[in-house]
Amino acid sequence: MPEDLASNEPSRSQQADSAAEPVVIFNDVSITFDVKPVLENISFTVRHGETRIILGPAGGGKSVLMKLANGLIKPDSGTIRVFGEDVTAMRERDLFKLRGRIGMVFQESALFDSLSVADNVAFRLHEERVPEDEIHARVVEALQFVELEQAIEKFPSELSGGMRRRVSIARAIVSRPDLILYDSPTGGLDPITSTTIIELIVKQRDVTQTTSLLITHRLQDAFLLARNRFNQQTGQMEPIPDGGIDNSTKFLVLNEGRIVFDGTTRELIGTEDPWLKEYIT
């Protein structure tokens, strides 16, 4: 049942983490591709249970930042700590173990096109040598969470863009990660499908309180996340009453490889920075 994801006990590793210690710490991180600086002196932290929305114009280094957080690329300088481990100094072999605690949703879904939806979602579980019966149960559970259990036997080429994103989310959450990285999960989708994806992210946030980083170009998606909550009784996303804002959702705004804002939703709305005011209006 999808609700089972809500009732899953936090993993042992998650329990072991001190709630006070940030899950992700970027400290003075810079990276240059060829001669062009992509990120310069980036420092921020993401605390346990926090949803950090990364906003900014295209080409501002957001996806690079996400790949850095997962150790897929290494920075030229600075350190990145995830769950207390320095991913900039780790060997690839050790990173594979750390990534067992991280789920990632890629910009273009990045589903394995030669595998069925079931095999895509089960990929990590197969790697972890989980028994087949348990794999099937967890795959069905994850697909029910994204409301795609009917597509279990299909191949990625048979799915729409929105369905692929949902499968990608199912693949990211099937191993019950402690941190989820969403790289433009609504990019290139129509507004209705985007709202469906955001609803799933809100559901994941409010049901499991999983720490997450989310990149988006769409301000409406970002504010939808900040101003809504998931009602487990009705199974629907609904606005937080009295114009309330989700306290666990924070913002990081990047422009030309630099942080121009790091703070809460209210601070972002009340900003006096001219560029930022123009960007969010």
Binding site: F96, A110, E127
Partner: peptide, 17 residues
């Protein structure tokens, strides 16, 4: 094709070499 569609990165992100 897997490289340009980020499937190789996805594989690494899923803990597979």
């Amino acid at each position: 094709s897997m490289k340009v569609t980020e499937q190789i990165d996805a594989m690494r992100a899923l803990g597979t070499d």
